[in-house]
Amino acid sequence: MKLQVHRTYNFNAGPSALPFSVLEKAQAELIDFRGTGMSVMELSHRSRTYEEVHNQAINNMKELLSIPDTYEILFLQGGASLQFSMIPMNFLKSGKKASYVMTGSWSEKAFSEAKLFGDVYHAASTKEGNYRSIPKIDQLQYNAEDTYLHLTSNNTIYGTQWTDFPDSGDVPLIADMSSDILSRPIDVNKFALIYAGAQKNLGPSGVTVVIIRKDLLEQANTSVPTMLKYSTYAKNNSLYNTPPTFGIYMLGEVLNWVRELGGLTAISERNEQKAKLIYEAIDSSNDFYIGHADKDSRSLMNLTFNLKTEELEKKFLEQAKKEGFVGINGHRSIGGCRVSSYNAVPIEACKAFSEFMIDFQTKNS
């Protein structure tokens, strides 16, 4: 007899919702993985069975994102936060500069870390407008001699997202895509390096994916500790030391799930449909709900808004919690409300929340 499972409306910003079918499969395989008599968490990372899991995850990533053979796919640890340091350690050259586009808290943190290793500056910033927008591509000011140009593709705290990316020419373009990777088709060829923590769209926390162009690898600084060199992972298929095996297994299953849904075109349409439900409730509310991001910069992943008064906002959040909506408090640094509608959040959850918003407005106007 199958047990009844209670599932909440999970809008957590990360770790975030995982596809229910993936969780069910992981549960079924947890004790005895593929007839080994062991959990995938117990397998040696040098075993043939785990190697198949590992390589399948890499191949799935290549297929879904149409990644050419000129790139390496690496599985690291330390989250995007470690990448903030690894990138300048590996690529910020002595006597050269790197440029950063400032669109929120995570780009600020990346910039602060890079300053420890060399000369960096702002290619653009929307901080004066409280990060309500993404800069226009023609507003970016960087130099052809820069060692790289860095941006954050989606801003979880402020709810903004790039809709297009610059063609940076000979300047390597590096992107933190932690919160919107795999949410829509992108042209990987525009980027020299993409990095992403897994815990939003790719799987559970503990895995960091890096997609890096091979020619950039060849340009890396050599006086970097072994475990902080990208080349260490590239030369060893990310198996130089013990990787987060269970997280990589789950990542591979999430990628299978996306493929079964129809790939990135299908997932993008689904994400647009989900976001539309929430944004329509905001836009039709006559400023009962006040969106944070400018409309042309709105994120499909993190939908941010406030209510007219703090008292009303508090009541809204309390009532939403009672109704089973989890994770909709805005980030502690700015407050307000935030609906994180990552890939695995069902359409039904966004529909239910939209209906709750409309009902709450009716009862409190």
Rank of each mutant, 00 (worst) to 15 (best):
A123E: 05
K127P: 06
G159N: 05
Q161E: 15
S153R: 08
F117T: 01
N154I: 07
L116H: 06
T147F: 02
T152A: 09
S153D: 04
P172Q: 11
D119T: 05
D119C: 00
D138M: 08
G169Q: 06
N154Y: 07
F117A: 04
G118A: 02
H122R: 15
Y158M: 14
N143S: 09
L173F: 03
T126K: 05
Y142D: 08
S168P: 03
T163H: 15
I134P: 00
Q141I: 03
S125L: 07
P135K: 09
L140N: 09
L173P: 03
S133E: 09
D170V: 04
L140Y: 07
S168F: 03
K136G: 03
T163N: 15
Y142W: 10
D170A: 10
T163K: 15
Q161H: 11
S125N: 09
Q161N: 11
L173N: 01
K127A: 14
S153F: 00
Q139S: 14
Y131L: 04
Q139M: 13
A144S: 12
P172E: 01
Y121C: 13
R132T: 08
T126V: 12
P166D: 06
L140K: 04
A124N: 12
T152S: 15
W162N: 07
N143Y: 03
D170Y: 00
D164P: 01
K136Y: 01
S133P: 00
N155H: 03
I157C: 06
L140A: 08
Q161A: 11
Q161T: 11
H150V: 03
Y121Q: 13
S153P: 06
D170Q: 12
L149W: 07
E145P: 02
G129N: 14
F117W: 07
T156Q: 15
H150Q: 09
W162D: 00
R132L: 04
D119G: 05
P172A: 02
L149E: 10
V171N: 09
I157H: 13
I134Q: 09
D138W: 06
S125G: 09
N155M: 10
G118T: 00
Y148D: 04
N154Q: 10
T126R: 07
N130S: 13
N130H: 08
T147D: 13
S168W: 05
Q141M: 09
S133Y: 10
R132C: 06
A123D: 02
P166V: 04
S125D: 11
L173Y: 01
S153Q: 07
D146P: 00
D164C: 11
D146E: 06
P166W: 02
G118L: 00
F165S: 03
N143D: 12
A144L: 08
E145R: 14
D167W: 00
P172M: 11
P166T: 06
Y131Q: 08
L140T: 07
N154S: 15
Y121N: 12
L151F: 02
Y142V: 08
L151V: 07
L116G: 08
I137S: 06
T152M: 06
D138R: 10
H122E: 15
G118S: 03
D119A: 00
T163R: 15
S125T: 12
T156W: 15
Y121S: 11
L173I: 00
Y158R: 14
H122G: 05
N130F: 10
D164K: 11
L116M: 12
D146R: 05
E145Q: 13
Y131I: 07
T156C: 14
D167S: 08
G129F: 13
